[in-house]
């Protein structure tokens, strides 16, 4: 839906009449400090980081001489960064899928006109109010292989207990560049903690989507004799397509920025099985003093995010009335 020209003239008739007044300048003056701040601290700094990523500044002393794509070549050939990309891929896919499914499932349950709805809803969302650092500290103990969840699994009679985040196994472990491609099992522990924290977000979004579907549509489908399962797939789910796009993009966005949780829970892990680009950038830059390589990693992170966010923002705002 493009802007309707007719509506534009309805909402903005004043401008045509009044040639110049302070009132036309005020909105821009109001916004000016923010525009400057964002122009400098977001766009200016991104350009600056971009420039740094093409320099030889890989020691404590800034050296801004041109280095071409050497830093990008270096990180893409680096065992650690290759591991990061693999980890980010598997983490994102599993985290997004599981959070989405659990979020949708819980939203449907909560939407069944249940008692104590507010209580259940609050319980599923409260981890969102907690810091990733707190989550990391607590789950680090819960998924510590010698205690926590494993005590319960042991009591249930399991003999082969999972090693959680200390596991260095990669499944299926296909040689790829310098690394083995596959799912590092250690990531499952981080995914569990992340899903605990974020699935409530998916639930909240899906619930608001479900509430927007008129009741008579839900009831009509039920009366038609379609059983609940078919109703859900044929009638309800297609209505939630837009919500699903939002859920997926927002979860991808969170996943790509994952930093605190890893920092508090596992660190980069043995052989970087739980490392992420965010962590790599932080340590490469501020502990290793390889500023230019750190900058290159952050530019790759930015590009990966922009692939999802820019079309989403364009699409979200385009449908709005002017």
């Amino acid at each position: 839906m493009a802007m309707q020209p007719a509506e534009m003239t309805i909402t903005q008739p004043r401008r045509a009449r009044k040639p110049w007044t302070w009132e036309r300048v005020y909105p821009i003056l109001t916004l000016l400090p923010s525009i400057i701040a964002i122009a400098v601290f977001v766009y200016g700094f991104i350009v600056w980081t971009g420039v740094v990523s093409f320099t030889k500044w890989n020691t404590l002393v800034p050296d801004l001489s041109w280095n071409g794509f050497a830093n990008y070549r270096a990180i893409f050939q680096d065992f650690r960064f290759q591991s990061d990309l693999r980890n980010l891929l598997f983490f994102t896919v599993l985290f997004v899928l599981v959070s989405m499914i659990i979020g949708l499932f819980l939203a449907v349950l909560v939407d069944q006109k249940i008692r104590l709805e507010g209580l259940f809803r609050s319980l599923f969302i409260f981890p969102m109010a907690i810091a990733f650092i707190v989550t990391g500290v607590v789950w680090q103990w819960l998924l510590n292989p010698s205690t926590g969840v494993n005590l319960i699994l042991k009591a249930l009679g399991l003999t082969h207990l999972p090693k959680w985040y200390v596991d260095i196994t990669i499944v299926p472990s296909i040689p790829w560049g310098h690394i083995k491609f596959g799912l590092p099992l250690a990531l499952l522990a981080v995914i569990i903690a992340a899903v605990w924290q974020m699935s409530g977000f998916a639930m909240a979004l899906y619930l608001s989507g479900l509430r927007a579907i008129p009741d008579d549509l839900k009831e009509a489908a039920a009366v038609d004799g379609a059983n609940a399962w078919t109703t859900f797939w044929r009638v309800i789910l297609p209505q939630l397509n837009a919500v699903t796009v939002t859920v997926v993009i927002m979860l991808i966005h969170i996943s790509m920025k994952t930093f605190d949780l890893i920092y508090a829970m596992t660190g980069p892990g043995a052989a970087f099985v739980t490392d992420m680009p965010s962590m790599d950038m932080f340590q490469t830059t501020f502990q290793g003093n390889h500023y230019a390589q750190g900058a290159a990693i952050s530019i790759i992170m930015l590009l990966l995010l922009a692939i999802f966010i820019v079309p989403y923002l364009t699409y979200s705002l385009r449908g709005e009335k002017p």
């Binding site: 964002i38 977001v42 200016g44 980081t49 740094v52 952050s298 992170m301």
Partner: peptide
């Protein structure tokens, strides 16, 4: 867009 950037990409400056 400023709220979606990874803050690593502005951290050095």
């Amino acid at each position: 867009f400023g709220m979606f950037i990874p803050y690593q990409s502005v951290l050095i400056p």
